[in-house]
Design a protein around this nucleic acid. Structure first.
Length: 460
RNA sequence: UCCCCAGUAGCUCAGUCGGCAGAGCAGGUGGCUGUUAACCACCGUGUCCGUGGUUCGAGUCCGCGCUGGGGAGCCA
């Protein structure tokens, strides 16, 4: 008999007659002449209630089935006599595929997230993490669908990069050299004999590559892993995370902001429509205000706020901040939180930042003081998108690089794009895990990625 | 990297003023019930994170270290 997934047994409109279900036992409750078995196969949040009667030839074994054990159940799919579930399976055969010993660490009770992180290989078997990772899969699909619907092409940009100067953050070095015998020149490692014949690192962003493809295919996006060797110890940072980076030719900052807002709103709506059961768990047990937050994210128009005006609002607020607000300084977390959580109470897109605090590739505005940058801030998480219109004017770009004492030679190919058919273009990076945090209300990034990598943590 | 907090049974935690180490859950045994975080009775469980010190005596006080969490910085 062909296996039926449990979500189909639970969503059924009519009895399905005789079925085969396979999964893991969440709990067992014994009655005098029969047992209730809660079976979960990960296809949905809900468990299938299985009735195992004493007439089963292995009933003595069945009564010993422990939480976490794997079983295959055949039986009749019938309306449940008890409350709490519509359907149940009256078993006529239960095969114990594997009995989990009583050392199985997951119990029928709430565990802390901290404990579950120490058993990250088992935590997807819990209700909460199962729900989170089903949502993660749907969210990734929603992203691809969003871009495909709008004619964007998906580009696979390299994970290994040859430049140590992509801009953002500390890099993870990649080498095939024997680290006990690294050849040196002038006291520095000599990469000439290494795999690529030069220094190599893990990517911190696919942006520069994506720009090249935007200037060929028009609208493109990347969606892949990104690596930062920053010693960040916060609930919002991971050393390995997934980033979505659209890049659009013939697009200015306004169009860029519009796409960011549209993207967040569309994918959140899709999760609300397609993952109602899983979302309900988070609304109930993780963040009581989740549905309100999501509704707000979907319904409200995101504020467009020039950095200059943000500074004015913060100065006028009369609120005492730990760090002073001053034009030319980057806004602190507390300032961003005030704007999005207290002042506007909805997502805020800050734009046109001073060029002194932004990287070389952002387009310099006519005031020659600000650049066409934008950050999308959402309540409680903070920055979820960072992007800009790119500097398409070769002379201005080279001048900016000189200003920042950057060598232009390694960027010869990047600068080529400004020599041949250069056009205004824009893009941004969306932190996929931060989007997950927004959607689920989970407050720690380590709990929305299967096996989190953070400083001093690479188990599993 | 900096600041703050925590570390006690498999898990979640309590432990008073420095005076013999506790509960609930999980597990085991028996009972009861179309049950649903089932229920009732009984049973076992410890490097009190490590290390050095103060003290007649340290889970408790002090120093150092490790691990975890929260906040800050960096950013997605």
């Amino acid at each position: 008999m062909k296996r039926t997934k449990i979500f189909q047994l639970i969503d059924a409109d009519a009895p399905l007659d005789r079925v085969l279900a396979k999964g893991w036992v969440r709990t067992r409750r014994d009655s005098k002449t029969f047992s209730f078995i809660e079976l979960n196969d990960g296809s949905c949040l809900k468990n299938l209630q299985v009735i195992a009667d004493e007439s089963l030839d292995n009933y003595e074994e069945i009564k010993k089935i422990t939480t976490g054990s794997a079983v295959a159940v055949t039986g009749r799919h019938v309306e449940s006599k008890g409350g709490g579930q519509k359907w149940e399976v009256q078993a006529d055969g239960i095969e114990i595929i594997h009995m989990a010993p009583e050392t199985y660490p997951l119990q029928k009770k709430r565990h802390t997230d901290e404990f579950l992180r120490t058993i990250a290989h088992l935590r997807p078997r819990t209700n909460k993490y199962g729900a989170a990772f089903r949502i993660r899969a749907e969210l990734a699909y929603a992203i691809h669908q969003f871009f495909r619907d709008r004619g964007f092409k998906y580009i696979h940009t390299p994970i290994l990069t040859g430049s140590d100067c992509e801009g953002a953050g500390e890099l993870f070095r990649v080498t095939a050299m024997d680290l006990t015998r690294v050849p040196t020149v002038d006291g520095k490692p000599d990469f000439d004999g290494d795999f690529f014949g030069r220094e190599a690192n893990l990517t911190v962003s696919g942006q520069l590559s994506a720009e090249m493809f935007a200037l060929a295919l028009g609208d493109v996006y990347t969606f892949g892993p990104t690596f930062r060797a920053e010693n960040s110890n916060t609930r919002r940072h991971a050393a390995e995370f997934w980033m979505v980076e659209p890049e659009m030719a013939f697009c200015d900052l306004a169009g860029n902001m519009g796409l960011g807002e549209d993207l967040i709103r569309t994918v959140v709506r899709q999760i609300m429509d397609n993952c109602a059961d899983d979302l309900e768990l988070f609304a109930k047990f993780v963040d009581k205000k989740l549905m309100k937050t999501l509704q707000n994210t979907v319904d409200s128009d995101y504020v467009r706020l020039p950095y200059r005006e943000a500074v004015a609002i913060l100065l006028k607020s009369g609120k005492k901040f730990e760090f002073p607000v001053e034009f030319g300084k980057d806004l602190q977390s507390e300032h961003e939180r005030f704007l999005t959580e207290n002042h506007f109470r909805k997502p805020v897109i800050l734009h046109d930042y001073p060029k002194t605090i932004k990287p070389f590739y952002m387009r310099v505005n006519d005031d020659n003081e600000t650049v066409a940058a934008m950050d999308v801030l959402v309540p409680s998480i903070g920055e979820i998108i960072g992007g800009s219109q790119r500097e398409e004017r070769l002379d201005v770009l080279e001048a900016r690089m000189a200003e920042l004492s950057m060598e232009t030679e390694p960027y010869w190919w990047y600068l080529d794009s400004r020599r041949y058919g250069s056009v205004p273009h824009s893009g941004f990076g969306l932190g996929f895990e931060r989007l997950m945090m927004l959607v689920t209300g989970i407050s720690n990034i380590r709990d929305v990625i299967p096996f989190p990598r953070t400083p001093r943590n690479i188990e599993f």
